[in-house]
Simulated assay, not measured.
Amino acid sequence: MDMNHPPIPLPSSIRSRSIDGINGLTVHVLESGFETQGRPCVLLLHGFPELAFSWRKVMPALADAGYHVLAPDQRGYGRTNGWDTNFDGDLAPFRLTNLVRDALGVVTAFGHRSVAAVVGHDFGSSVAAWCGVIRPDVFRSVVLMSAPFAGPPQIALNTADTPPEPKREDPVHRELAALPRPRKHYHWYYSTREADNDLSHTPQGMHDFLRAYYHHKSADWKDNQPYPLKSWSAGELAKLPTYYVMDFAKTMPETVAEEMPSREAIAANTWLPDHELAVYSAEYQRTGFQGGLQWYRCGTSGAFTTELETWSGRSIDVPSCFISGKQDWGTHQRPGVFETMQKSACTRMLDVHLVEGAGHWVQQEQPGEVSRLLLQFLSAAGP
Rank of each mutant, 00 (worst) to 15 (best):
V69Q: 10
E169I: 11
A129D: 02
R95T: 01
A61V: 08
K239I: 06
P171K: 11
L374G: 06
E356D: 15
D196Y: 02
K230F: 00
P241L: 09
K326D: 11
W221S: 14
V58D: 06
G24T: 02
E254Y: 02
G78V: 05
G120R: 05
E339Y: 07
G78W: 03
L157N: 09
I316P: 01
N197V: 10
R334E: 14
M1F: 09
H121C: 07
A267I: 05
D274M: 12
V107Y: 01
G76L: 05
I323G: 11
V352S: 13
G288Q: 01
S315I: 01
H5W: 15
D88K: 12
W295G: 08
Y190N: 13
Q327W: 09
A147F: 12
L51H: 07
Q363H: 15
K343W: 09
Y190G: 09
T255S: 11
L375F: 06
F338I: 02
P11Y: 06
R101Y: 00
E283I: 15
C346F: 13
M252P: 02
V245I: 13
I316D: 02
T251N: 09
M206L: 03
A117V: 03
V100S: 05
T305I: 15
G21S: 11
S18L: 15
V143Y: 03
R348Y: 04
K167Q: 10
A156N: 11
R39C: 04
L99W: 00
T270A: 11
A117S: 15
W83A: 03
C346G: 06
V318H: 04
P319F: 09
G151A: 08
R211D: 01
E254L: 04
E165S: 14
A268P: 03
L91V: 08
K239T: 14
S344C: 05
P72F: 03
P6K: 13
A265Q: 15
P166Q: 04
